[in-house]
């Protein structure tokens, strides 16, 4: 494929953005910031896809990942301590091993990219990528596409079952207690015995 120097410059900037943002994900002090850094990395990759003429896929990256990372940020705030990033945060294990594994993976893949020869078979002239994708999805590969839809439906049902408040055997959070303030101590934040049952007040937190 021939392209102008501007495409090369744009690619270079976007590539640097994608890698730096991806690296910052694991180096920032706030989980919300981490998920939005990941979103920046996705957006940069989506823009590169658009440079590669995959116009539908690039735009699909934008909206899919915007919603996904938004949900992720919400879960971050719900589950993690220190959501606002006021304290330094570094929660890692097997750190050295992970760095080595990441570097080794990069070098092996990079060596494959550099030293193996791939067929040069660029996009044919006059190809309409969006149209060809649509015809493929609702034509020859319809079974795959529809299976993905069914799997997504099954996921939705499974997720609701896994995370619903009430299951067949009673309330989901039954028996779940927050950790004590000191090791082995009484659970923190529990109402005094004899007060109204605590389980139902969960419903009011969401507003």
């Amino acid at each position: 494929m021939e392209h102008s120097i501007f495409v090369d410059i744009a690619f270079l900037l976007l590539a640097v953005l994608a890698v730096v943002a991806g690296w910052r994900v694991f180096r920032t002090d706030s989980m919300v910031r981490a998920s939005f850094f990941l979103l920046v990395s996705f957006i940069a990759v989506g823009a590169i896809m658009m440079l590669l003429a995959a116009e539908y896929l690039g735009v699909a990256m934008f909206f899919m990942m915007a919603v996904e990372m938004m949900v992720m940020a919400l879960f971050m705030v719900m589950f993690m301590m220190n959501p606002a990033g006021l304290n330094p945060m570094m929660m890692v294990h097997q750190h050295r091993l992970s760095i080595i594994a990441g570097a080794v993976a990069f070098f092996i893949l990079a060596a494959m990219a550099l030293f193996s020869s791939f067929p040069a078979d660029p996009l044919p002239a006059g190809l309409d990528p969006v149209r060809s994708l649509g015809h493929e999805m609702l034509g020859d590969s319809m079974l795959i596409f529809e299976s993905a839809g069914i799997v997504l439906l099954a996921t939705m049902i499974g997720v609701v079952v896994l995370s619903s408040h009430r299951g067949r055997y009673g309330a989901a959070e039954e028996g779940s207690v927050p950790p004590g303030l000191e090791p082995g101590g009484d659970p923190a934040g529990q109402p005094e015995k004899g007060e109204s049952e605590g389980g139902h007040e969960h419903h009011h937190h969401h507003h």
């Binding site: 539908y56 735009v59 934008f62 909206f63 919603v67 990372m69 938004m70």
Partner: peptide, 24 residues
């Protein structure tokens, strides 16, 4: 763009992120 309708959809989705960021 040949996918400008979808790009407008992404603008709406990204607006959610930006508004959340503004409040957070």
């Amino acid at each position: 763009l040949v996918t400008s309708v979808v790009l407008w959809g992404s603008v709406e989705a990204l607006a959610t992120v930006v508004i959340f960021l503004h409040g957070w």
